[in-house]
Amino acid sequence: MNLTNRDDFQEALVKNLIIVILGIVINCINGIIVLTFCKNSVFHSDSRYILYMNLVVNDMILICVSVTLYVLTYAYPIFNASMCYTWSVIGSTTHMNTPIILAGMAIERYIAICKPLHHAQICTVRRTYIIIALTWGVGFVPAVADVIIVLATRPIGFFSSVIFCIYLNLYNTRYHAEKVKVVQALYMSFVWLTLIYTYFMVFRTARAAKGDTASAKKAQNTILLHGAQLLLCMLSYITPLLDVVLISFFPIHRSKITFLCYLITNIIPRLLTPLIYSVRDQTFAKHMSKYYSCKVIIVKVKLKRRRLKCSSKRVCSSKG
């Protein structure tokens, strides 16, 4: 996060407008995706789309928390520590969820392509929701561990104090540093190994298949996009190091560097989510255009007007 005393009013206003507008755009698109899912029962029994909705909802929560905290660092940077920790736990959980959800979605595509006869038995709706619950539980554990370390190392009165709400102020003990190393090593190695394994298995199946290879190639491209999204998300883990390196070369542009790093590592990866499924998936794209195209809205408005006119004519004729 940026330090407000580095920016003048105009620069701070432009940065906040960019972040807020992008956050609103992303959440509006994701909101339409969620509504499309809820309005069409055809998606409710498909584990692929259920997992995708989990990713979309996770991104929406993450964007809300991230953008709110970013704006607060300018508008009201110092507030209650307990409130800051609450926001931090939510943001940390959703941040950790993203790579795990991507790994789960890659595994589902692997089963669908490499084990199509067993897909319906393995990827049931019930098991999909169990996986989602486990995902949130696994993502929640590191955030709770951070708070437990704070409770063990600081007096309880600290939570009623006021602080500048940034990560370094919240978690700055050596225990937190060790925990971060262990968690990132375990989580990221699992996720990357999963993506690499599923990609090559799908790739091998696509080359060996004699029949319909279009779905296998599409799944292969989807996993590649998952990898690209994960790579962008992983940049957030090296953002502090990236800031230090770049700022050492360009100390005058410290504020601009931190802003660009935040934009690239936290906001841009969430723009890929609609691209991966909503645009590339023909079924989902068809339903989205069906319910949210401008033409449909205009037709619905005209139909409502006609109905109102017809009902008013009937009322008038009955009175006459």
Rank of each mutant, 00 (worst) to 15 (best):
Q220W: 09
V71R: 01
V71D: 10
S66Q: 08
T194A: 08
A152H: 08
L263Q: 02
I90T: 11
Q282D: 14
F159Q: 05
P116A: 14
T283Y: 02
P99D: 02
S236G: 05
A120D: 13
N169T: 11
T135N: 15
S289E: 08
N221L: 11
H119N: 15
I111M: 10
I268S: 02
T86Q: 04
V299I: 11
M1A: 08
I107A: 04
L69I: 02
P116I: 12
A143L: 04
N169G: 08
I223A: 03
I252F: 10
Y175V: 05
N58G: 04
D146H: 11
S311Y: 03
F140Q: 04
Q229V: 03
L246M: 09
M60N: 10
P99V: 02
S255E: 09
V202Y: 00
S289R: 12
R204Y: 06
N30E: 13
A106M: 07
V65S: 01
I264E: 06
I131T: 08
R207D: 14
A145F: 09
M96G: 00
Y85C: 01
C64R: 03
R126S: 15
I61H: 00
S278P: 00
T73G: 05
A177F: 04
F200Y: 14
I107L: 12
K295T: 12
F158Q: 08
F200T: 11
D7E: 12
L13T: 11
L271G: 01
Q121L: 08
L3R: 10
V20N: 03
Y291M: 13
